[in-house]
């Protein structure tokens, strides 16, 4: 194991986060705070409790998930796309590093940033609404698994993209709708039966449901199913990455 290389890549990516602090931490925290003020306090005060939880508290897990997903993807995809774009990737490709080490460096850093961000948003939420976390272990597990999975997904996106537009289009056109329709702001049994069934094809539902369960013990789907679906998506991303590295897809000609 080339531990120095892992540390170098990881450190490089973390340094990038510090350099762009306003973009990587401040702006997601600010936008999430706005959600809390608008939906949690202003509108939320007119909405009745959902399953015994006040609306402001109800949306916290979904909002954290929303940030985790978008930031994991944005961070990891940019982290690998930018060196490809500028050409500095030559150095990583010519270095005595294995693909696993490259992956740990880039995805590890992106996931770390997401986890830190998630915890900051959680703390911020505590300022606006009342929070209780029933299962700390599961909450952290979901936080870590989601960050890793979607950082992997972002890594794949950053390798697939051949322009900045593609880099933006997936988060905007796929991830944001899936998250909004994934029960961030509502419980899916508030939907008509037909749409409840449709929603079950949305993988984000399982993430948000499981995460919310770890807070309030209320869930749209069984917690076991949530964990299973998350692991399934993680496995799918790992297989995709394995294939990318095996073939050198868009990395080596």
């Amino acid at each position: 194991m080339n531990i120095h290389a892992v540390r170098a890549i990881y450190g490089f990516e973390m340094a990038r986060a510090w350099r762009t602090l306003s973009q990587s931490i401040v702006s997601p925290v600010l936008s999430t705070s706005l959600y809390f003020i608008v939906f949690g306090s202003a509108i939320g005060s007119r909405i009745t409790e959902i399953d015994g939880v006040s609306y402001g508290s109800f949306i916290v897990p979904g909002l954290i998930m929303l940030s985790l997903l978008t930031q994991s993807i944005a961070n990891a995809s940019f982290g690998i796309y930018f060196p490809r774009f500028t050409g500095t990737i030559y150095e990583v490709l010519s270095a005595p590093v294995s693909y696993v080490e490259i992956l740990i460096g880039y995805v590890g850093a992106a996931a770390t940033k997401s986890i830190i961000l998630g915890l900051i948003i959680l703390a911020t939420a505590g300022l606006f609404v009342e929070l209780e976390i029933a299962h700390w272990f599961w909450m952290l597990l979901f936080l870590v698994m989601t960050s890793v999975t979607f950082s992997l997904f972002g890594f794949i996106l950053g390798i697939w993209a051949d322009g900045f537009e593609k880099l933006q289009i997936v988060p905007l056109l796929v991830i944001t709708p899936l998250t909004f329709l994934g029960g961030s702001f509502y419980s899916i049994d508030m939907l008509p039966p037909f749409w409840q069934t449709v929603t079950l094809f949305n993988p984000v539902v399982y993430l948000i449901s499981g995460f919310r369960w770890s807070f309030y013990e209320i869930a749209d789907v069984n917690i076991g199913v949530s964990v299973g679906m998350t692991l399934l998506f993680l496995a799918a991303c790992l297989i995709a990455v394995w294939w990318i590295f095996r073939t050198g897809y868009r990395l080596k000609s």
Partner: peptide, 21 residues
């Protein structure tokens, strides 16, 4: 091809680490 936003010291140190030293 350089990392435009890095300092000279940081980028050279990065290379050394990347090559396992």
């Amino acid at each position: 091809t350089t990392d435009a936003f890095e300092t000279v010291w940081a980028t050279v140190s990065f290379s050394r680490g990347l090559f396992g030293k």
